[in-house]
Structures are given as structure tokens and as C-alpha cells.
Design a protein around this nucleic acid. Structure first.
Lengths: 345, 345
DNA sequence: GCGCCAAATTGAAGCGTTTCAAAAACATTA
DNA sequence: TAATGTTTTTGAAACGCTTCAATTTGGCGC
């Protein structure tokens, strides 16, 4: 109707209902100390005026908001979509909304979201960091905003963190490949300064070392952890003459593995697993339904997100009684067809 | 340090810098009417105290926030991820942050986000609706919050909308399949009450009708538009005896098409496009890199999102001068291998 | 030193809530 | 009826910011 008019406030409601603003506030917050008849009158006035509570004012008074900021490097990666879902679910059950900030691996944008969330006085921040955020977290905390690291281990005493044991995951995948009788193996992944990638590679290397020459590991670096990057590597490998093919490929994540799979399938030259075995990492939903069901190292992404939020909420609500914890989950090997021992060979 | 202490406010800064709070505010808002020396002093005080502006207070005063709420039914669908990206980019260039609410096709959650966003006094709401939101939008608008529909056409006069011509898209795909010489065609998709799906099917049907008996269209309904649902349909079709196979399949979106493709490839029975041609819808990034590059009907998802935000911002900023518009984009046929005419046949 | 103008700074009002001590209304008992 | 206890209601004081009319300061010409 009259779009220019001020939106009705709590005091407009009070006036119309013939009560004080304190009473309206009590009704809004469902305090049980208001007489039912009064409640009705107030609700009616609210309805009539189309009153909607102003969250900014509420927050200003409260000093804190029932919101958690989640910063992730790449929301289009199913691992993070899943992680976010876990965070949202646990947040909701504790009465928090989760706001997602997507950085695209850009440190600048990461800092932008730290700022935005701090200005909004979110209850706390969960971050899967792109760059080293230790200093930022320390500062943030000094100013009174809590933070929890996810998918990255924190230096203890700084803050809580929920991470995966990527080194163990790398070992798991590599040991599996060796057990299957493979010895010439290629690790595909990058950039090298992604901690997770580096750890997985290190885990794999440790197995090679322990095998005392029974296995050999090469590393093909990629600029990204995407399907497209995987596809390029796959084409590159299948273009080699057959004798240069590895026995197996360990991809740093499932997106890469899927890309490799696509390249192989498209050219119909390399058969998986008969010619080259393949294992990925993350066990995204898509792995199971890939053209050849993909072996992978499962990370409980949803649980990671949920646990991070849980720790954060604990910190926010228990205050000084809270103690920082570094939780590390162990990954789990999921064997599917892409890395199975050739049946008849 | 002392985490219990109140966070510093603008007046703490003012006191330390020896100026009035008005001046501090001017510095924060980079008004040019402050002497450089004063600016320095204030900035130093801000630094020293670790002051961070309280956004709630700022918003309360302003009455509006520089935020736009975006409500989508399924953020894990690349179409919506892309749409959101477009919305974010345009929003950012106009100085708005975009908050994303994911409903999972749940009308209850959709209403929840409407409420949340309204309480937060967002600048406006962009929604790709799950249920009919006409009434909600009308109410919202009456109370002073603007909204724009995306991927769904609005009844004119209600609000702006940015949609795709799904009927035309359905025609496009179908005409292409007929041109390739196919006549027995299956449309895969559902639920039937998704407007987009219904429109695409209607478009396809209109072509069949115009063909005067040259073509025949069946409909296999699915409960979701996911890879998994597609896979099931694919298995079902390939399980049929060869003579019951259709010439071509038109999938209501690319996720379904990819699932179908997977089922066919896995069982190595049906060849695409030699045995059955396949076309999807959306042209998600993944379509091009699918195991058989997937023909599709391109929707400029990013542009949809950006345009919706553009209309919303126009409405918010120009107020009464704004006129509602219903923008409809035309989809574009993208022919790839999955539907090409068999080379030698 | 004076007057004048522009530039810089001030400070109080107000945004819409929540909170909480105090007041009012009502109920119960002596 | 008065005294007492209990349930409701009240209303003013924050919360931390922006705004803007009013005031102060500083520069300049005379």
C-alpha cells in the first residue's frame, strides 16, 4: 500500500494493543508471564500491522547473534558442500544459522569474510583456511570472536580444530595399491602448497620407503583439484606408449580421479582397473556412481563440519570453562572396482 | 587477553583519540571532512583498541542492510551454484553481500528463510521458488521488503521476475532429435509439479504434435532431478530388450542425463549416440566433460542470477520510480556428441 | 587586532529492541 | 477490611551507531 511509511515497530504494536512495549517484547519472546488474554490482543495487533521484529535492534541489544560464519575455499567441491551441510544441521539443532562464505582459494576474499563476520558479531567462525590464518585467529580471539579450524590442524592453544589425518590416508591408499600387487605408481595432485595434498603425498611416500624398493612413486602436479585438471592428466598418461603406463594412479581427490577416468573411458584405450588401477580421495557421492565405481579414501565431511560447529558452540556458550581441542579423524579405505585386483589376470 | 571485557565501541575510540564520536564515525565512513592529522589519531586508537564496527547498530540506524537474500531449492545442483555465483558477482559490484538459503525443495524451510531474511531487514530477496510464493511475495512487499522471482515467471504487477522459456527449450531439444531422424523418444524427468519440468515436456509435446505422427513421445517420471535418479532410469531402459529401446532420450536436466549415461556406460550395452541418442538440459560445466560429451539446452544460469539481482537493486534504490519487469531468456541448443547423427549409419 | 568565511569538530537525538526494578492489579487469608 | 503474597504490567535505561544543526577553529585580508 503505502510503501513509504515507516515499518511498524514494537511500540506501534504496543499502542494498538493498549499495552506497554515491555509486554509486547515478552509476548514476542514467549515469556510465560503474560496473561493469555493479553497475548491474544498483542498477537492480533501484530497481525493487523504486519509487524516483523527487527533483528538488528535485537542483536544490538544482545551483543551477539545466533549465527555462525563458515568460510570454505570451494563450495562447488562436493566435499565442502557436504561439510557445510553437516555444519548447518548441527548449527540448526543448537539454534544457530550458518552463513557460508566462499573464497575460491583467494586469501583476499578469505580476509574479507573474516571482517564481514566479525562486524556482524557472529557467534563464531568456522574456517577451512586457504592461507595460514593463525595470526588472524589470534587477533580475532583477542577481540572476542571465537574461531575453529576445520580440515586443518591448529597449533594447540590457539583454538580448536577438526582435521583429518591426511598422512594416514595417503598411507592407506598406497598400502592398498601395493597389496594389489602394483609397483609403478603415480600420485596426481596439486598445488603442492595445499597442506592436505602434501600430507597425502607424504603418507604415500612413507609407504614406498618402507617397501624397500618394491615400489616406485612418481608425482604429476596439477594446478587445481578439479575434474578438468584430472582429465588433462588422464589424456597425457594415455597418450604415452603402453609400456610407460603406471600400474596404478593415486589421485589427490575424487574430482581429479573422475577426470582421469573420463579421459581413459573417452579414448577407450586404458581400461580401469585392468590396465591401470585408480584410487581417489574424499569418497564424494559421485565416486560410487562413477563410470567405474571409484575406490577412495573416505572422509566424513559432514561429521567434520558438525564437529567443528559443536566445538565452536561449546566455546561460545561455556566461555572460560572451554578447553581447546584438536580432534583428528582417521580416514577409511573404500575399495571399489576401480582398484580391485584383476579377476582373471 | 581479557575476554570478558566489553568490546570497545566507537566512544572508547573517541575518548582515546581525544575527539568526539561524530568524528570517529566520519573517519569510519571515510568522509573527506576530517583533517588528515585527526584521521591518523583516530585510526591509531582503533588499531590500539582492536575496534571493529558493530554492524547491528549501523543497520539499526540505517533501517536497511546492504544484503540480499537468495533462496534456492538445491545448491548442490550446479545450475543453482552457477546462478548464485552470478547473483553474488553482480551484488558485490553494487555493494551488496548475498546470503544464500538452501531449502532442499522444502516449502517449510522456504518460508523459514523468508522470515529470517525479513527480520534481518535485507535489502531484498531473490527466490527461485519451490511452492507458489505469490501470496508471500505480496505480503512481503506490503510490509516493505522487495522480492524478485528467478527461474519462475511472476504474474505481472506482482513483482519482477527473470525466467527461462522452458517451453521453447523443450521444443528446441525435441526438434533437434527429430532432425537427427529419431522418432521413438522418451522424456525423463519429474516431479511433474516442477513447473520447469512440466514446461519442457509441454514444449517437447508440441513438437510431436506438429510432426503429425512422425514422432512418438513417452514419459518416464522421476522423483528427483539427480544423477542417482537418472542412473535408475538408465538401468531400467537398458534392461529392456533392444527392440524396445527408444531412438533417443530427452532428460529434463543434465544430472539425470549424466546418470543415464553412467548406467549405459557401466553395462556397456547401450552405446550413445549410436544406439540411443541423449540430450540433457542446463548445460552445466560437467556436460562438456561427461564420458560422452553431452548435448544440452543451455541456460545462462549466471546471467539469470545477475539479472535478478540487478532488477532487485533497481527496485530498492529507485523506489517508486521502478517498474516491474518480466524478463524471459531464450535457451540455446548445444549439440555435442551424445546426440549427433551416427556417422556411418 | 578584527571580521569574515570555510573547514573541522561536536554532541545530542534517535533507530527498535531487551531487560529489570518498581508499580499495579489481583487473589488469598486472617 | 486490612494485610500479605502472587501474578502482570510498566517504562526508562541501555546497546553502538549515524546524522546534522550548531559550534569551534583556523586562515586570510585588511
Amino acid at each position: 500500500m503505502n510503501r513509504s511509511k515507516r515499518r511498524p515497530s514494537i511500540s506501534d504494536v504496543a499502542r494498538l494493543a493498549g499495552v506497554s512495549i515491555g509486554t509486547v517484547s515478552n509476548v514476542l519472546n514467549t515469556t510465560d508471564k503474560v496473561k493469555p488474554a493479553t497475548v491474544d490482543r498483542v498477537l492480533q495487533a501484530i497481525e493487523q500491522l504486519g509487524f516483523v521484529r527487527n533483528d538488528a535492534a535485537r542483536q544490538l541489544k544482545a551483543g551477539k547473534s545466533q549465527t555462525i560464519g563458515l568460510i570454505v575455499p570451494d563450495i562447488s567441491n562436493p566435499f565442502f558442500t557436504e561439510l557445510a551441510r553437516g555444519a548447518e544441521q548441527l548449527g540448526e539443532s543448537d539454534g544457530y544459522s550458518v552463513l557460508i562464505g566462499n573464497t575460491g582459494h583467494d586469501a583476499e576474499r578469505e580476509r574479507g569474510y573474516f571482517n564481514l563476520f566479525e562486524q556482524q558479531r557472529v557467534g563464531g567462525i568456522v574456517v577451512s583456511p586457504t592461507e595460514d590464518v593463525t595470526e588472524q585467529v589470534v587477533q580475532l580471539r583477542k577481540r572476542g570472536t571465537n574461531a575453529v579450524l576445520v580440515d586443518r590442524k591448529a597449533e594447540s592453544n590457539i583454538c580448536c580444530s577438526v582435521s583429518m589425518d591426511d598422512f594416514a590416508g595417503g598411507k592407506l591408499a598406497m598400502e592398498h595399491l601395493l597389496e594389489q600387487g602394483h609397483s609403478e605408481i603415480i600420485f596426481v595432485g596439486g598445488p603442492a602448497d595445499f597442506q592436505q595434498v602434501a600430507d597425502r603425498l607424504a603418507g604415500a611416500k612413507s609407504v614406498v620407503k618402507a617397501s624397500k624398493g618394491r615400489a616406485n612413486l612418481k608425482h604429476i602436479k596439477t594446478a587445481e583439484l578439479t575434474v578438468l585438471a584430472g582429465r588433462e592428466v588422464g589424456q597425457q598418461i594415455s597418450a604415452e606408449s603402453r609400456k610407460n603406463w603406471p600400474d596404478a594412479i593415486f589421485a589427490a581427490n575424487d574430482l581429479l580421479a573422475v577426470g582421469i577416468l573420463q579421459a581413459f573411458a573417452f579414448q577407450a584405450k586404458v581400461r580401469v582397473p585392468e590396465d591401470i588401477a585408480l584410487i581417489g580421495y574424499d569418497d564424494i557421492d559421485f565416486a560410487e556412481t562413477a563410470i567405474v565405481p571409484l575406490s577412495s579414501v573416505r572422509q566424513p565431511a559432514s561429521l567434520l563440519g558438525a564437529t567443528a560447529v559443536e566445538l565452536l558452540v561449546d566455546e561460545v556458550e561455556r566461555g572460560p570453562a572451554h578447553k581447546h581441542r584438536q580432534i583428528t579423524f582417521q580416514p577409511e579405505l573404500i575399495v571399489r572396482e576401480s582398484s580391485s585386483k584383476p579377476a582373471s589376470d
